[in-house]
Design a protein around this nucleic acid. Structure first.
Length: 336
RNA sequence: GAGUAGGGAGGUA
């Protein structure tokens, strides 16, 4: 059974949930660890509903969830924004006396914060016997995500006051908080703290800084941050491209998109929306259609209804009405 | 042998 759990875990971490399920079902004996491994796998793959189903089934099979299982369950509720079921998990945690374990406490803070129950999250944070960088970061992210920038940044002070050192994840959430405050001064402050701490080469930090500067229209700063990063991925590129799109510099939208492709980085569906918008802006019907074709042919992605809407909009505005109508007909969905 | 926090998301017709 140890070998089985390890194998299930290995398949999950390689991204092969189906193989993990297969091994799981072929094992003659199951225990809490094995169940929890599979549940964690569902959560990891954003399949919260199946994770919770699995917990139910494990209970029916006579196993009682332990702290590990309950942490996974609360995470599942967080991703599902299912706070009602989340409260049930919380109750179970309290009944079993796990509430003061740091990882359990942190997962509850994160769940409530993600679901927007910020006061509850805060209460749990304050009541934890010991807080760590994860506790604070989860709280900061919750505040930031729901537009409470000031509160988020106060948490940064709070953790410094407790001599808990922040890390790159903490700063990412703080920069996110800055975006909701709307003044760029705090952003500059954080940016220099990030440079001081040596986090500027961190990819998520770079992406959110680019995005922060983009939102305040400071494209030069955004480009500056971008240029400091030697490892780039599609998220970072898209943040920059989005910036040029916002200020109407379509040439830079196209040139940066092509540069990204030139680096061998695969665009994702979101970046094509920005491209179509630029095409629309410039009236570039042929270019738009060429990119639309490329989505499937070159990148093996499936355009969504939004992509069709964007391209149909482009066709319609430029007077290609019959082509627009035939696009509507060829869509796999009912037009909205 | 299993568990907790972070990044980009078009248009608004």
């Amino acid at each position: 059974i140890y070998v089985g759990s390890t194998l299930v875990d290995m398949y999950i971490k390689c991204g092969s949930l189906s193989k993990a399920q297969k091994v799981f079902h072929e094992l003659p004996n199951r225990d809490v660890v094995l169940w929890t491994t599979l549940i964690a796998g569902y959560v990891d793959h954003d399949r919260g509903e199946e994770a919770l189903q699995c917990v139910k089934q494990m209970k029916r099979d006579g196993f009682s969830p332990n702290a590990h299982t309950l942490v996974c369950s609360s995470k599942a509720c967080g991703t599902l924004k299912a706070i009602d079921r989340g409260q049930g998990i919380h109750t179970e945690i309290t009944l079993k006396g796990y509430e003061h374990e740091i990882m359990v406490g942190n997962s509850l803070i994160s769940m409530y914060a993600t679901c927007g129950l910020l006061e509850t999250a805060r209460l749990l944070l304050d009541r934890l016997p010991f807080r760590d960088v994860v506790s604070w970061t989860a709280m900061i992210d919750g505040y930031a995500e729901h537009g409470y920038g000031e509160e988020a940044l106060n948490c940064l002070k709070g953790m410094q006051h407790e001599s808990i050192s922040s890390n790159a994840l903490t700063y990412t959430c703080c920069v996110k908080a800055c975006c909701s405050i709307g003044t760029i001064e705090k952003g500059y402050e954080l940016h220099s703290a990030i440079v001081e701490r040596g986090f500027e080469s961190d990819l998520p930090i770079g992406s959110i800084l680019v995005s922060m500067y983009v939102k305040s229209g400071a494209l030069r700063e955004a480009q500056f941050v971008f240029d400091k990063l030697t490892i780039r991925d599609y998220v970072l590129w898209t943040a920059l491209i989005e910036g040029y799109s916002q200020v109407g510099e379509s040439e830079n939208v196209f040139s940066n998109f092509d540069k990204m492709l030139g680096e061998g980085i695969k665009p994702d569906l979101a970046s094509f929306l920005i491209i179509f918008n630029a095409c629309n802006h410039e009236g570039l019907v042929e270019k738009g259609l060429a990119y639309f074709e490329a989505i499937r042919r070159e990148y093996g992605l499936t355009p969504t209804l939004e992509h069709y809407t964007a391209i149909i909009d482009l066709l319609g505005r430029s007077g290609h009405l019959s082509k627009a109508i035939s696009m509507i007909r060829e869509m796999p969905w009912h037009p909205d």
